[in-house]
């Protein structure tokens, strides 16, 4: 485990469905400063992956930190990571602790 985020986990989500299928809340300047997964939709890529869970906090997307990013900026970053043809997966660094 790293020193800064000892409980974080890297989850690789393959783009196995046409949607990512997660809902997030939170972002800088809200009560939830880092995005938290609030829903995982059945049949979406995240659900198919089987490793993301409701309640997890997303720390990084493809190695890019979400710290200090407002909700819309974080959501845009995740959406773009899913949309790009450059990769067939999205890497999420998540933690179970808030």
């Amino acid at each position: 485990p790293g020193l800064l985020e000892p409980t974080s986990t890297l989850v690789r989500v393959a783009k196995s469905a046409s949607t990512l299928g997660i809902a997030i809340e939170g972002g800088a300047n809200t009560r939830q400063p880092l995005p938290r997964i609030v829903t995982i939709q059945r049949g979406g890529s995240a659900h198919n992956c089987g490793q993301l869970k409701v309640g997890q906090i997303i720390l990084e997307v493809n190695g890019v930190s979400l710290r200090g990013r407002e909700h819309r900026d974080a959501a845009r970053l995740i959406a773009e990571a899913f949309k790009t043809k450059e990769r067939d997966h999205v890497d999420f660094l998540v933690t179970d602790f808030n």
């Binding site: 949607t19 300047n29 939830q32």
Partner: peptide
Amino acid sequence: REKRLTLPPSEITLL
């Protein structure tokens, strides 16, 4: 007493 945080709740986005 401890002051409550006054930060607003976040919107939710489906991705």
